[in-house]
Simulated scan of single mutants.
Amino acid sequence: MSKQPKLGECLKALRRRNGWTLQDVNKRTGVAVSTLSKVENDQMSLTYDKLLQISEGLGINLAELLALPVDTGLALARRSVSKPDEGLLQTTPNYDYLYLCTEIQRKRMVPVIARVKSRDIGEFGPLVRHSGEEFIYVLDGAIDVHTDHYAPVRLEKGGSIYIDSTMGHGYVAVGPQDATVLAVCSSPDPDLEGTLRSLFAM
């Protein structure tokens, strides 16, 4: 009979897997460090609302919060190579996405080459939100990065930005030419690539 994992050990495993301190989780969720410490040490339980607050703050669903990672005892040795222009292309009004290394399933880091087509944030539509974090590096052209909580910032070729992607965000090209960026999204979501592709589906 399998042992039902406790919230404390699930939270601790998730935190260590992502390299987060208790203070990091506090900043993301608004739950006090003392409360998080007591939960991890099985000294208190949480209400459903608090569980939701933690899962939403960490950009995951409740099932992920309450699950321990499967340990097979075997080291992974996956590898994927993408040649120029190879990948899965997804076209949207604001971006053209070329997903790389798509044959590896259930990866927690999704690399994408994106062509930024939109020029006007007013026509962009609602800012995008999804679980995890996101790194953007400008390969060609220039973009304006719009996010919740911050003033827009312009990035020229060679510029980069790292954001929490649970925060609303959107990128628009500057000037007459489309911009090209390398985007790397990461998340505890075991099907992050599928989630992203569904989010941007027409």
Score class of each variant (00 low, 15 high):
residue 62 L to M: 12
residue 40 E to L: 01
residue 77 A to S: 14
residue 70 V to C: 04
residue 164 D to P: 03
residue 33 V to G: 08
residue 26 N to V: 03
residue 3 K to I: 11
residue 174 V to H: 00
residue 28 R to K: 11
residue 12 K to R: 15
residue 85 D to E: 12
residue 61 N to V: 11
residue 33 V to T: 15
residue 130 H to P: 05
residue 159 G to Q: 08
residue 37 S to G: 04
residue 95 Y to E: 03
residue 124 F to N: 06
residue 117 K to Q: 13
residue 189 D to A: 07
residue 36 L to K: 00
residue 58 L to R: 04
residue 145 V to Y: 12
residue 158 G to E: 04
residue 131 S to D: 14
residue 186 S to K: 08
residue 152 P to S: 04
residue 5 P to Q: 07
residue 10 C to K: 10
residue 171 Y to K: 04
residue 115 R to S: 11
residue 7 L to E: 08
residue 85 D to L: 14
residue 23 Q to P: 00
residue 199 L to T: 05
residue 16 R to M: 11
residue 173 A to G: 03
residue 37 S to T: 11
residue 24 D to F: 05
residue 196 L to V: 04
residue 34 S to P: 06
residue 159 G to C: 06
residue 76 L to F: 07
residue 192 L to R: 05
residue 119 R to D: 04
residue 166 T to I: 11
residue 13 A to L: 02
residue 57 G to K: 05
residue 106 R to M: 13
residue 122 G to M: 02
residue 125 G to R: 15
residue 13 A to R: 05
residue 170 G to T: 04
residue 143 I to H: 01
residue 199 L to W: 06
residue 164 D to H: 06
residue 37 S to C: 02
residue 93 P to V: 02
residue 22 L to Q: 15
residue 55 S to P: 02
residue 183 A to M: 12
residue 128 V to L: 15
residue 96 D to V: 08
residue 146 H to N: 14
residue 52 L to I: 10
residue 64 E to R: 11
